[in-house]
Simulated assay, not measured.
Amino acid sequence: MATEPSDGHAAATGEPIYVDGEEALDQIVAENDVVLADFYADWCGPCQMLEPIVETLAEETEAAVAKVDVDANQMLASSYGVRGVPTLVLFADGEQVEEIVGVQGEDRLRSLIESYTN
């Protein structure tokens, strides 16, 4: 259905972008005005509850959504001070502007994203 554009702007697909490493996350943040980074773990029940919300936000908002597996990217998670999962980090204009720990409702996350995209 959606394909990856050749210029690396995967956010245009409306799907979460799975990140492997700090360089990949830095590139996504640099290429998009607003980025929601979801630091998650496959074994985390609350992360699984949050996943459909994050996927909806990727489809329906102007934010790029990055998914960061904390088990595969321990150094990256540590560099952002992630102590528990899920942790959502919101970037606007290349800067970290928000950090939210735990499952949040779609409405709250949508409002937060829209406060930076509008």
Rank of each mutant, 00 (worst) to 15 (best):
A24Q: 08
Q96Y: 05
Y40V: 06
T117C: 11
T13H: 06
D20I: 04
F39T: 02
I100T: 12
E60R: 07
E98Q: 13
G84N: 14
E23G: 11
M49G: 06
E95V: 05
E51N: 05
Q96V: 13
Q74D: 15
A92R: 09
D7Q: 07
E15T: 14
V29P: 01
I28H: 00
D33N: 08
D33G: 11
H9E: 05
E60A: 04
G81R: 15
V35M: 06
L88W: 06
L76S: 00
M49K: 09
P86K: 00
L76A: 01
S6H: 07
E98W: 06
W43Q: 14
F39W: 06
M1E: 10
L112E: 03
A41N: 03
E51K: 11
Y116M: 04
Q27I: 12
D93S: 06
I113F: 07
A92Y: 11
V85I: 15
N73Q: 13
A41I: 09
A12K: 07
V101Y: 01
A37N: 10
H9P: 02
W43C: 08
W43F: 15
F39I: 07
Y18K: 10
N32Q: 04
E51L: 02
Y40I: 02
L25D: 08
S78I: 08
P16H: 08
V19F: 10
Y80V: 04
P16R: 05
G8H: 11
P46L: 00
A66M: 10
E23V: 10
T87E: 06
A63K: 11
L88S: 04
Q74L: 13
V65P: 06
S6Q: 13
L50Y: 00
F91Q: 04
E59C: 05
T61F: 13
E95Y: 08
P5W: 03
S6M: 12
A64G: 06
T61M: 14
L90T: 14
D20V: 09
L36E: 07
V65T: 10
A11D: 14
D20F: 06
V101T: 12
V68Q: 01
Y116R: 12
A64I: 09
G45Q: 06
D33F: 01
Q104H: 15
T87F: 03
A10D: 13
P46N: 02
Q104D: 12
R83I: 12
G105R: 04
E55M: 05
E4Q: 12
A10T: 10
G84S: 15
D42G: 07
P5H: 01
D107Q: 14
S78Y: 09
G84V: 15
G45N: 03
L112T: 15
T61I: 14
I100F: 05
E99A: 00
Q27F: 02
F91E: 08
P46W: 01
I100G: 01
